[in-house]
Each structure stands twice: as C-alpha cells, then as structure tokens.
Computed example of a mutant assay.
Amino acid sequence: MKISPFLLLLFGLLAFAPKPKLTNVKLGSGLTVGVPATFAPLPDDGIAVKYPSPRKPLAVYSDRSGRVDYSVAVRPTTFESMDYGVLLKIYKSSIQRLYTKVDFIKEDIRTVNGRDFMYFEFVSTVADSQRANQLAPIKRYQAVQYAIQGQQLYIFTFVAPANEQAQWQPTAQAVMNAIVLK
C-alpha cells in the first residue's frame, strides 16, 4: 500500500492545526461550558429579539457580527438518560419537521467528559414557498447536543451560516466537547 506524500502532508498539517480558543464559563451549579474567546454574551433584550419564546435560553453567546451563536437552554423533561436511543429518533424527526430540508452530517450518542449526550450535526434549509416572489433559502450549519440531568433536558446549540461551515465546524465541535455537566 502506497501513501502519497500529499496525504502525509495534509494529515501532518491537520494534526498541528490550531485548536479554537475557548473560555470556560460556569452557567450554574454543575454546568460549565467552553465559549469561543471572541464571543460575547447576548443581553436579555437581544435574546428576546433573536429567540422569541416564553422560555428564554439560559445563555446565548454571539460572535462580533451577530451571525454565529452558541446557546444553552434548559427544559423540564420526564425522560431519563436511558431513553437516549429512542429520543435520538424523536429529536431527529423533530429537527426534520422544523426545516424545509435537513442534511445530517452526524447523529449519535456520544460521551463527553464522562457524560452521555445525544448529538446532531447538520445543515438546515428554510425555503419560502408561500409567496409569489420567493426569498432566497436560508441555510445554516448547526451542531446540537442534548443531555438529561435529573428532571432537566439541557440543549446546547451552535449555529452559523452554512457557507461558513468550514470555518466554524472545528469551533462548534470544540464547544460541544468542552461541556462539563455534573
């Protein structure tokens, strides 16, 4: 088997690629997340505008442009972590219903810092087919991770424009791997 010098060079460069710089933020008793160092917390009025919901997220951090977000939400649940296998299918179906089109990159149950999470990585598309003069579809790259702790469901979401996926994917993965939930 012959390995080309180009592949060796590529693997070598990737191994030494800079890791995204994260700042650890404690969001509550037993919950610490890694937030990109260049992100800033969104104030409550900004959260209300960007995430209109009766239950606002626990925290939202945005890049300087305001186009890339990392949010943490907590919701009550009656499910338990042993239900992850079934919930993975339910949440996948829910994600598919939210958007016109979903291209899944990855979906699985994985362990991060000793805790199991349900993980989805995908590109979503929302197309406006109701108007006579249609608007351009909105495409977003998203990484979403769920965990159940007691009676609470924790939802960690990283969202960026789909055309910037290559730039933000390493950061999204680093953020999801930096969650510590005790």
Rank of each mutant, 00 (worst) to 15 (best):
L22F: 04
L22E: 00
V25S: 00
K26R: 14
L27C: 07
G30Y: 01
G30L: 02
T32D: 04
V33H: 00
V33S: 03
G34I: 05
P36Q: 14
P36I: 09
A37P: 03
A37T: 09
A40H: 13
L42S: 10
D45G: 01
G46F: 00
A48S: 14
A48F: 03
K50S: 11
P54A: 14
P54V: 07
P54C: 02
R55Q: 13
P57Q: 10
P57W: 06
A59F: 05
A59K: 10
V60R: 06
V60C: 10
Y61V: 12
S62E: 15
S62R: 13
R64S: 13
R64N: 09
S65V: 06
D69Q: 03
Y70H: 09
V72Y: 04
A73C: 03
V74F: 05
V74S: 13
V74M: 15
V74R: 13
T77Q: 10
T78V: 08
T78F: 03
F79G: 01
F79Q: 12
S81N: 11
M82K: 09
M82G: 02
G85M: 02
V86Q: 14
L88N: 09
I90M: 13
I90A: 13
I90W: 05
S93R: 14
Q96K: 15
R97T: 12
L98S: 15
T100L: 07
K101H: 11
D103W: 00
F104I: 04
I105T: 12
I105E: 12
D108R: 08
I109G: 00
I109T: 04
R110L: 15
T111A: 06
V112A: 05
V112G: 08
V112D: 06
V112T: 07
V112R: 06
N113E: 12
N113W: 07
G114N: 07
R115P: 02
R115S: 10
D116E: 14
D116P: 06
F117D: 03
M118L: 15
E121C: 05
F122L: 08
F122I: 04
A127S: 15
A127D: 12
A127M: 10
A132Q: 11
A132R: 11
L135D: 12
A136N: 10
K139E: 13
